[in-house]
Amino acid sequence: MKYTVYLSGEIHSDWREKIKNATQEHNLPIEILTPNTDHDSSDECGAGILGAEEKPFWKDHKAAKLNSIRHMTALNRADIVIVRFGEKYKQWNAAFDAGIATALGKSLIVEHAKELTHPLKEVDAAAMAVAENTEQVIEILRYLCQDY
Protein backbone atom coordinates (compact mmCIF):
# COMPACT_ATOMS: atom_id res chain seq x y z
CA MET A 1 0.00 0.00 0.00
CA LYS A 2 1.21 3.51 -0.78
CA TYR A 3 0.32 6.46 1.44
CA THR A 4 0.17 10.18 0.85
CA VAL A 5 1.10 12.00 4.05
CA TYR A 6 0.64 15.70 4.78
CA LEU A 7 3.02 17.15 7.39
CA SER A 8 1.27 20.08 9.07
CA GLY A 9 2.17 22.25 12.01
CA GLU A 10 5.26 23.70 13.60
CA ILE A 11 7.84 25.13 11.17
CA HIS A 12 10.73 26.01 13.50
CA SER A 13 12.47 22.63 13.72
CA ASP A 14 13.68 19.89 11.38
CA TRP A 15 10.97 17.32 12.13
CA ARG A 16 9.77 17.25 8.51
CA GLU A 17 13.29 16.54 7.27
CA LYS A 18 13.63 13.70 9.77
CA ILE A 19 10.44 12.11 8.47
CA LYS A 20 11.39 12.65 4.82
CA ASN A 21 14.84 11.16 5.42
CA ALA A 22 13.40 8.16 7.28
CA THR A 23 10.90 7.40 4.51
CA GLN A 24 13.76 7.39 2.00
CA GLU A 25 16.15 5.45 4.26
CA HIS A 26 13.57 2.74 4.93
CA ASN A 27 12.22 2.84 1.36
CA LEU A 28 8.69 3.46 2.62
CA PRO A 29 5.96 3.83 -0.02
CA ILE A 30 5.04 7.32 1.15
CA GLU A 31 4.55 10.56 -0.75
CA ILE A 32 5.16 13.58 1.50
CA LEU A 33 3.19 16.83 1.13
CA THR A 34 4.02 19.98 3.10
CA PRO A 35 2.83 23.54 3.53
CA ASN A 36 5.12 26.42 2.67
CA THR A 37 7.56 26.32 5.58
CA ASP A 38 9.35 29.56 4.68
CA HIS A 39 7.77 31.94 7.19
CA ASP A 40 8.54 35.16 5.31
CA SER A 41 7.41 33.75 1.96
CA SER A 42 4.18 32.49 3.49
CA ASP A 43 3.44 35.84 5.18
CA GLU A 44 4.34 37.98 2.15
CA CYS A 45 2.89 35.97 -0.77
CA GLY A 46 -0.44 37.80 -0.89
CA ALA A 47 0.97 41.30 -0.97
CA GLY A 48 3.87 40.24 -3.16
CA ILE A 49 1.66 38.67 -5.81
CA LEU A 50 -1.65 40.52 -5.52
CA GLY A 51 -0.48 43.94 -4.31
CA ALA A 52 0.25 45.75 -1.09
CA GLU A 53 -2.40 46.52 1.51
CA GLU A 54 -2.56 49.41 3.94
CA LYS A 55 -4.08 47.36 6.76
CA PRO A 56 -2.31 44.29 8.18
CA PHE A 57 -5.62 42.40 8.29
CA TRP A 58 -6.00 42.51 4.49
CA LYS A 59 -2.33 41.68 3.93
CA ASP A 60 -2.72 38.60 6.14
CA HIS A 61 -6.07 37.78 4.54
CA LYS A 62 -4.54 37.66 1.05
CA ALA A 63 -1.66 35.48 2.24
CA ALA A 64 -3.97 33.14 4.12
CA LYS A 65 -6.19 32.69 1.06
CA LEU A 66 -3.24 31.86 -1.20
CA ASN A 67 -1.70 29.51 1.37
CA SER A 68 -5.04 27.79 1.89
CA ILE A 69 -5.00 26.66 -1.75
CA ARG A 70 -1.90 24.60 -0.97
CA HIS A 71 -3.16 23.44 2.45
CA MET A 72 -6.60 22.38 1.26
CA THR A 73 -5.21 20.59 -1.79
CA ALA A 74 -2.76 18.69 0.41
CA LEU A 75 -5.39 17.88 3.04
CA ASN A 76 -7.74 16.55 0.38
CA ARG A 77 -5.01 14.43 -1.26
CA ALA A 78 -3.63 13.01 1.98
CA ASP A 79 -4.41 9.58 3.39
CA ILE A 80 -2.71 10.51 6.65
CA VAL A 81 -2.29 13.95 8.21
CA ILE A 82 0.46 14.41 10.76
CA VAL A 83 0.20 17.57 12.84
CA ARG A 84 3.10 18.58 15.06
CA PHE A 85 2.61 21.14 17.80
CA GLY A 86 5.83 22.78 18.97
CA GLU A 87 6.36 24.33 22.36
CA LYS A 88 7.51 27.80 21.29
CA TYR A 89 4.43 29.23 19.54
CA LYS A 90 0.70 28.71 19.61
CA GLN A 91 -0.03 26.95 16.33
CA TRP A 92 -3.63 27.88 15.68
CA ASN A 93 -3.22 26.94 12.03
CA ALA A 94 -2.07 23.45 13.05
CA ALA A 95 -5.17 22.97 15.19
CA PHE A 96 -7.27 24.18 12.28
CA ASP A 97 -5.61 21.65 9.95
CA ALA A 98 -6.25 18.89 12.50
CA GLY A 99 -9.93 19.84 12.59
CA ILE A 100 -10.22 19.90 8.82
CA ALA A 101 -8.43 16.55 8.56
CA THR A 102 -10.88 15.07 11.05
CA ALA A 103 -13.87 16.55 9.21
CA LEU A 104 -12.55 15.06 5.96
CA GLY A 105 -12.24 11.64 7.58
CA LYS A 106 -8.45 11.54 7.28
CA SER A 107 -6.31 9.44 9.60
CA LEU A 108 -4.79 11.94 12.02
CA ILE A 109 -1.51 11.52 13.89
CA VAL A 110 -0.62 14.26 16.38
CA GLU A 111 2.81 14.93 17.83
CA HIS A 112 3.52 17.13 20.84
CA ALA A 113 5.34 17.22 24.16
CA LYS A 114 3.66 15.83 27.29
CA GLU A 115 3.26 19.38 28.63
CA LEU A 116 0.76 20.15 25.84
CA THR A 117 -1.53 17.19 26.60
CA HIS A 118 -4.11 19.23 28.51
CA PRO A 119 -4.46 22.17 26.08
CA LEU A 120 -4.61 19.76 23.11
CA LYS A 121 -6.94 17.18 24.67
CA GLU A 122 -9.71 17.72 22.10
CA VAL A 123 -7.26 17.45 19.20
CA ASP A 124 -5.74 14.33 20.77
CA ALA A 125 -9.20 12.80 21.18
CA ALA A 126 -9.75 13.04 17.42
CA ALA A 127 -6.36 11.51 16.55
CA MET A 128 -5.68 7.89 15.68
CA ALA A 129 -2.32 8.21 17.45
CA VAL A 130 -0.65 10.78 19.70
CA ALA A 131 3.15 10.72 19.64
CA GLU A 132 5.52 12.50 21.99
CA ASN A 133 8.36 12.80 19.46
CA THR A 134 9.19 12.50 15.78
CA GLU A 135 10.88 9.14 16.27
CA GLN A 136 7.54 7.68 17.38
CA VAL A 137 5.88 9.17 14.29
CA ILE A 138 8.51 7.53 12.09
CA GLU A 139 7.94 4.18 13.81
CA ILE A 140 4.19 4.51 13.22
CA LEU A 141 4.82 5.11 9.52
CA ARG A 142 7.21 2.16 9.34
CA TYR A 143 4.60 -0.04 11.02
CA LEU A 144 1.87 1.06 8.62
CA CYS A 145 4.04 0.17 5.62
CA GLN A 146 4.96 -3.34 6.79
CA ASP A 147 3.71 -6.30 4.81
CA TYR A 148 2.32 -8.93 7.16
Score class of each variant (00 low, 15 high):
residue 63 A to L: 04
residue 84 R to S: 12
residue 21 N to P: 00
residue 39 H to Q: 14
residue 4 T to L: 01
residue 52 A to K: 15
residue 2 K to F: 09
residue 99 G to M: 09
residue 46 G to H: 05
residue 43 D to G: 01
residue 78 A to Q: 08
residue 119 P to M: 10
residue 103 A to I: 06
residue 39 H to E: 15
residue 59 K to I: 00
residue 122 E to F: 14
residue 50 L to K: 02
residue 102 T to D: 09
residue 97 D to E: 15
residue 3 Y to S: 03
residue 139 E to G: 00
residue 80 I to N: 06
residue 71 H to A: 11
residue 51 G to K: 04
residue 68 S to V: 00
residue 123 V to S: 02
residue 30 I to Q: 08
residue 10 E to M: 03
residue 124 D to A: 15
residue 119 P to S: 07
residue 146 Q to T: 10
residue 4 T to N: 01
residue 37 T to C: 03
residue 127 A to V: 01
residue 99 G to Q: 08
residue 133 N to K: 05
residue 83 V to F: 02
residue 12 H to K: 14
residue 13 S to F: 01
residue 115 E to L: 11
residue 80 I to K: 04
residue 91 Q to K: 03
residue 70 R to Q: 11
residue 77 R to Y: 01
residue 31 E to H: 13
residue 11 I to H: 05
residue 48 G to N: 08
residue 61 H to Q: 09
residue 137 V to A: 02
residue 29 P to M: 09
residue 144 L to I: 01
residue 106 K to D: 08
residue 14 D to W: 00
residue 33 L to C: 02
residue 44 E to N: 15
residue 6 Y to G: 01
residue 58 W to K: 11
residue 23 T to W: 01
residue 37 T to A: 07
residue 24 Q to I: 14
residue 105 G to A: 10
residue 60 D to G: 12
residue 34 T to L: 03
residue 32 I to K: 04
residue 123 V to Q: 06
residue 9 G to H: 07
residue 99 G to W: 02
residue 11 I to L: 09
residue 107 S to G: 02
residue 131 A to L: 00
residue 54 E to Y: 07
residue 94 A to N: 02
residue 40 D to C: 03
residue 30 I to M: 03
residue 7 L to D: 05
residue 128 M to S: 13
residue 138 I to R: 02
residue 19 I to Y: 05
residue 117 T to E: 14
residue 51 G to S: 10
residue 3 Y to G: 08
residue 146 Q to G: 00
residue 85 F to C: 08
residue 81 V to C: 07
residue 104 L to V: 04
residue 93 N to T: 10
residue 71 H to N: 10
residue 56 P to K: 11
residue 10 E to L: 07
residue 126 A to Y: 06
residue 49 I to F: 12
residue 129 A to P: 01
residue 66 L to V: 14
residue 108 L to G: 03
residue 83 V to K: 02
residue 73 T to E: 07
residue 101 A to H: 06
residue 31 E to G: 04
residue 120 L to E: 07
residue 50 L to D: 02
residue 94 A to Y: 03
residue 27 N to I: 09
residue 98 A to M: 04
residue 15 W to I: 12
residue 48 G to Q: 08
residue 94 A to I: 10
residue 90 K to R: 06
residue 72 M to Y: 09
residue 35 P to M: 06
residue 17 E to D: 11
